[in-house]
Every structure is written in structure tokens, then in C-alpha cells.
Amino acid sequence: MTVNRRTPGKRLRSFLRDWSLPRQMRGESHKGAAARSSASEQLRPRLEEADKVGTSICPYCAVGCAQLFYAKEGQLIHVEGDPRSPINQGTLCPKGAATFSLISNPDRLTKVKYRRPHGTEWEEVPLDWAMDRIAHLTKKTRDETFVETLPDGTQVNHTLSVASLGGATLDNEENYLIKKVFSGGLGMVWIENQARV
């Protein structure tokens, strides 16, 4: 956009000559040349600025609409339906169309919050500390409650005291690793997700 330093008369003449509305009112086609103005001539699509485009899938429901993610300098700048998809052909429903707002929502958590037993407030803690503490607690509870055999000698090799809930919003690879580590590695049996919700 340029700054307009001209006189009011010149501005009016420029308005009548250049702006699209007066020309459309004079009968020029609103679908053709009269849709343009000197301002619109200079407009560029925002997506042109993207330095990265990726293929994605809507994070909400299981219809599986495909999306295109556009980013510039590591920041997401746009999300839209992927026109190639045989499922959504570029369309998205109100939830899918909110994906950009969901990801760039300033209210999102960015730090680990910790609430100590009987605490009344959240405390912010370093990610590394939290990971160490969680590993310690997981091991402690597992070790204290692990059962190798039932009284009749049947091997069970499990803990009934650690549970995991969730998975339907996650990737297949994540579900795989949860089941592998929690069940195959630690012997947890209470592993469930939204499939029964």
C-alpha cells in the first residue's frame, strides 16, 4: 500500500478511476477488470510467504480430512483443507477449520505445572526434573506392587497399581510405544483409551 499525499480533488478523481466500486457501478464487470484496483494489484497471497508446507490430518474426528500446514520462520501461518483429498476435497467442518486457532491458541500450556501433595497452587518445574521424578514414581509404584505369580502358581507378571488412559487422539506410533513400554516393558494391565467412551 502506498501513502496518499494528493489533494482532495485528485483523490476523488483517482477514486473514481482506480477504485473498483465506481467502475462496477458504471457497468464494468465485477468479475473482470473492475474487480481490481491499484491496491488489490499489490496484494499478495499470504501463503506465498510460507517457507514450509506440510501435509497433515485433522486432529478432531475420525473422518480423517487432510489438511495443508503453511509455516514461515518456524511459525504456523495457515491451515486449510487439502484439495487433493478424496475424503474432504479441500473442505473442513467448523472443528477442522478451527485447527489453526487450536494450534496457535495463546492459552496453550507451554510449561510443566506441578502440584505437590496437598498443595493449593501450581508450581512451574523444569521438564527434566519432572521426567526424572515421574520415572522414579513409576518405578517405585511398580516395584511395590508387582505380582509375579498368583497363589496357585500361575505366572501373571503384572502390576495392578499403575494405569494409563488415553490414546485415541494420539498417533499410531505413540499408541504403539505406550503399549510396548507400559505393557510389554513394565507389566501394566490397566491400559485404556477413548475406544470405550
Partner: peptide, 10 residues
């Protein structure tokens, strides 16, 4: 019975 729990996106 359950003493420790992970809630992963649920």
C-alpha cells in the same frame, strides 16, 4: 487399588 496414573490426551 490403582496408585499412579497417566492421562495421555484424555
Amino acid at each position: 487399588l490403582i496408585k499412579g496414573m497417566f492421562l495421555l490426551g484424555q
